[in-house]
Nucleic acid binder design. Structure first.
Length: 869
RNA sequence: GGGCUCGUGGUCUAGACGGUUAUGACGUCGCCUUGACAUGGCGGAGGUCCUGAGUUCGAAUCUCAGCGGGCCCA
């Protein structure tokens, strides 16, 4: 331990890069074999490999890393795996963009290759950021959903669920993105407020109002509210649709709002979700007027081939020309958009694959899981309770897990791959057996699986499902954002339940979103995006992580603020100074000196510090167990800064620099314990800084050390009370000097302390003044100036009369009350009745009269401190 | 339109089992280079605890209503 090597300034970049390149990351590996330690498996979110690990990911990973490092130190066999959720539209869209093609212009296999290549490059970039942020990822348990080792599981899960009758193939209306030319799930639909026009149109018997005149070709009914007097007589009759001429029934349904538009609505296949409900309820016919590219079909007659927009324009002008359109009104409307390309979605009917949803089962399992914070469970419940359709899992895209299915060319029967054949792409491989009709000719399924079919398997994957290892379900923790509760959490619950009948995790910890410095969601269009790299370069990874810890409580959204990062890096420097000072006094505190030390040597302020330290350990442990990172870190920081640096160090400096060995030993012992404990407490949050600290304290990495155990015998009310008095006396004298323009190390003539017993050695050292404990009362006059009622006692006792009692107390001279309090009972009269109060029921403020004397008097916690100048 | 969440000095925030002096940070103002740290120390100013009503002896805290943010959805 050589303090000469410790620079005055903490150079975060050098320290962080040094440790990053020298750490042996195998210390973070999970042990799949028999291990006496309890397992702690984290079902980490596999990020989408965009190539850029954004600040929201980073916050999420900070939380995961805090937990992972803490649990390791607590003696758990921790798995912090890293997955990559590769498949899906965004990569396809990006490849189409960068290559200037559309998916159908190149062979399927070639397109997949381009996607894989881009994904691999992106993963590499993101790994770098994660390493730089010091996350203790277990890279031996990395998984990549596009690799056969992973997607074989996705396919197996499909086959198992198909055979279990949980997956079926059916023609059903689905959300369709005409740009991406694929079905999408409800979870992938986003809504945006837009202005549109409500068109009022004469039908032959009633007038209807619609925002979608281009869908008149697909009109299959008109609906009114059964209670609507205007239309009662027409219910059950047929109505002719203008321009297109089809005759449709006029039906009655409660769901029609009589007050909206004309009170009559046309039902089309399909304008919106409500149309689908009516279509199902009344078993209406299906007219497909829109094709998969969003163009009008033959069913639209002369409008065939037009885009939806063109068609709407044409229909409106034709309606107007023929006198059907009689009014237009502006209307605010929410349009469903494809979450990836922002194209308005349509509802089309098409054969698709579906997973059955069992809301009750999911809700029951959700109840068995601990939700942090608990109110987040409500989001899952609300979503689950409002599910209307099953989960559409087929997508008409390319870069995704293939559906291992063929259709027999002769009888049309579905051939499902056997598990032993997997993984495979039905477009490249044929079934290894004939159809039950004897045919060996098959048509492959070209649809692929929804990406959530991959990622909803992570809990199973990380716990060893379908691997050489024993299944270790449930995982201990699922960390994720609240934005994907309805998708990732929901689907994982569904799939784990369907495949293994168990809950996927014991605890789910929800993190909030990161908002920009302006309080809004970070987005390119708002220009408020900040990257983790930018923060690291300017202020260090540890400062970034500290912002992640203290930025907000777990679950709440966190605003990114530069000044918090600045404050974080200031704490690093402050902590560094504390460390540097401590180490300069610890060079000699080796085994040699330690043998002369015994706890009897500890002075009151030492016991005060140790009590506070152990209380801190106790609280930090409790809060880390509850994933309360902000309060944990704030407690540690507060201790280091206010308790240790501002007070303890100032009080023991004199002893440390002095030549009295016993006092020195005690202070060194305390310093050593404190610095060692702080290094450990900080380790989950500041892996680089704490490692640098620990490198001069002990052997090996701090990340292989145990979390500190609180020594309860050192926690003591009395030790803290006496320490607090010493601290307060010293800091009041410091303030006194400051107010009186004295240098802080300026000696005073003398300090006299009355009325309490207190150890004066450190007070004398810290104030550079002789301190004497005085017997008896000081010869000063006290003037009681104010009576302060203690409402905690008076309120509950007197209830309605409490107000009157307070009034009566205040009406008396403070000196009179004081005199009674000294005798043990205070009597007052309220509304003619006389009452007796205990002295505890009031606090009497007194002032010392010291005018005309060469002294100043401070009243501190019952102690009277007389300063002789 | 629904659900969730929040509204505290200039800014951000703690407090939420109801108890009279409302926490801390940043900013601001003043003083101080003291043998770890000026990226520091000490002190000061600055508050209708969103509004209104209710419960209560007593409300930032509980209840209701309203207003206003944010998020997730329809």
């Amino acid at each position: 331990m050589t303090e000469m090597e410790i620079p005055k300034e903490y150079n975060a970049t050098d320290v962080e890069e040094k440790w990053m390149s020298s750490w042996d990351l195998s210390m973070y590996h999970f042990n799949w074999e028999e291990d006496p330690r309890p397992q702690y498996i984290i079902d980490t979110p596999p990020p989408y490999p965009t190539g850029n690990f954004h600040i929201g990911n980073a916050l999420n990973w900070c939380y995961i890393d805090f937990v992972a490092r803490y649990r390791r130190m607590r003696g758990y066999n921790v798995m912090f795996p890293q997955g990559w959720d590769c498949h899906g539209l965004p990569t396809e869209v990006k490849v189409e963009e960068t290559q200037g093609i559309t998916k159908n212009q190149v062979p399927r296999a070639e397109f997949r290759r381009m996607c894989r290549e881009m994904t691999t490059g992106n993963i590499e970039k993101m790994r770098k950021t994660m390493l730089r942020l010091g996350f203790s990822v277990d890279w031996s348990n990395e998984f990549v959903t596009m690799e056969p080792e992973y997607f074989v599981k996705t396919q197996k899960s499909f086959v198992k669920m198909y055979e279990d009758d949980r997956i079926y193939h059916e023609e059903h209306p689905v959300n369709w993105c005409p740009r991406c030319e694929t079905a999408i799930a409800f979870a992938e639909v986003e809504y945006e407020a837009r202005k549109t026009k409500l068109n009022f149109i004469h039908f032959d018997k009633v007038n209807i109002a619609t925002t979608r005149p281009e869908l008149m070709a697909a009109c299959v009914a008109v609906a009114v509210n059964p209670k609507d007097e205007r239309y009662k007589e027409y219910i059950g009759q047929t109505i002719k649709v203008p321009l297109f001429g089809q005759k449709v029934p006029l039906i009655a349904d409660e769901a029609v709002e009589a007050g909206f538009g004309t009170g009559a609505v046309m039902i089309c296949t399909f304008g919106d979700k409500q149309d689908v409900r009516w279509w199902t309820k009344f078993k209406l016919p299906l007219i497909k007027a829109i094709d998969k590219k969003g163009k009008m079909t033959k069913a639209a007659g002369s409008y065939e081939g037009m885009s939806l927009k063109e068609c709407q324009k044409a229909v409106i002008s034709d309606l107007e020309a023929e006198g059907f359109l009689y009014a237009q009104k502006p209307l605010d409307q929410n349009v469903g958009l494809c979450w990836r390309c922002n194209t308005p979605i349509e509802i089309l009917s098409d054969p698709q694959w579906f997973v059955k949803i069992d809301p009750e089962g999911i809700l029951k399992k959700a109840d068995e899981i601990r939700w942090l914070p608990d109110y987040m469970k409500v989001r899952l419940e609300n979503w689950t309770e409002t599910m209307e359709w099953d989960w559409c899992i087929s997508r008409q895209r390319i870069f995704a897990t293939p559906i291992p299915i063929w259709y027999c060319k002769h009888c049309g029967k579905v051939m499902v791959a056997e598990e032993a054949w997997l993984p495979l792409d039905p477009n490249e491989t044929s079934p290894k057996k004939a159809c039950s009709c004897g045919s060996t000719e098959f048509e492959p399924e070209t649809d692929v699986l929804d990406t959530w079919m991959d990622s909803s398997l992570t809990a199973l994957h990380v716990t060893g499902w379908e691997s050489a290892h024993e299944l270790r379900l449930p995982a201990q923790l699922r960390p994720q954002g609240h934005d994907i509760i309805r998708t990732w959490a929901f689907y994982t619950l569904l799939r784990t339940l369907a495949l293994e009948g168990k809950k996927p995790w014991e605890t789910i910890m929800i993190n909030g979103m990161v908002l920009g410095p302006d309080g809004h969601k970070m987005s390119k269009s708002l220009g408020n995006v900040i990257s983790p790299e930018e923060v690291i370069t300017k202020y260090s990874a540890d400062a970034f992580r500290q912002w992640g810890a203290v930025g907000g409580s777990t679950g709440s959204d966190v605003m990114f603020r530069w000044k918090e990062v600045v404050a974080a890096s200031r704490f690093l420097q402050k902590m560094w100074s504390i460390y540097r000072f401590s180490m300069s006094h610890l060079k000699a505190f080796g085994a040699k000196e330690a043998q002369y030390f015994s706890k009897e040597l500890l002075l009151p302020i030492d016991r005060w510090l140790l009590s506070k330290l152990n209380r801190l350990v106790l609280a930090a442990t409790e809060e880390m167990d509850a994933c309360q990172f902000d309060s944990t870190f704030k407690a540690i920081r507060g201790f280091a800064w206010e308790v240790l640096a501002d007070n303890y160090l100032e009080l023991v400096k004199n002893r440390l620099y002095g030549d009295e060995l016993e006092g020195q030993l005690a202070a060194r012992y305390v310093l050593y314990q404190t610095v060692d404990t702080l290094a450990r407490l900080l380790a989950p949050f500041l892996p680089f800084f704490s490692e640098e600290m620990y490198s001069r304290l002990g052997a090996g990495s701090v990340h292989n050390q145990a979390w500190p155990e609180p020594e309860e015998s050192l926690i003591s009310q009395e030790a803290e009370a006496e320490g607090e008095l010493i601290k307060d006396i010293t800091s009041q004298i410091r303030r006194y000097k400051s107010e009186n323009g004295l240098a802080l190390n300026a000696p005073l003539k003398k300090i006299e302390i009355y009325k309490v017993q207190v150890d004066t050695r450190d007070i004398a050292g810290a104030t550079n003044t002789e301190v004497e404990l005085m017997k008896g009362a000081p010869s000063f006059e006290y003037l009681p100036v104010e009576v302060k009622p203690n409402m905690g006692i008076l309120g509950p006792r007197f209830r309605k009369e409490a107000g009157a009692v307070v009034k009566a107390l205040k009406a008396q001279a403070p000196a009179k009350i004081e005199a009674q309090a000294v005798s043990g009972k205070i009597s007052i009269s309220v509304a003619g009745k006389s009452l007796e109060l205990d002295p505890e029921a009031v606090e009497i403020k007194k002032e010392v009269i010291s005018e005309g004397r060469e002294v100043d008097v401070l009243d501190i916690r019952g102690a009277v401190v007389v300063i002789v100048r």
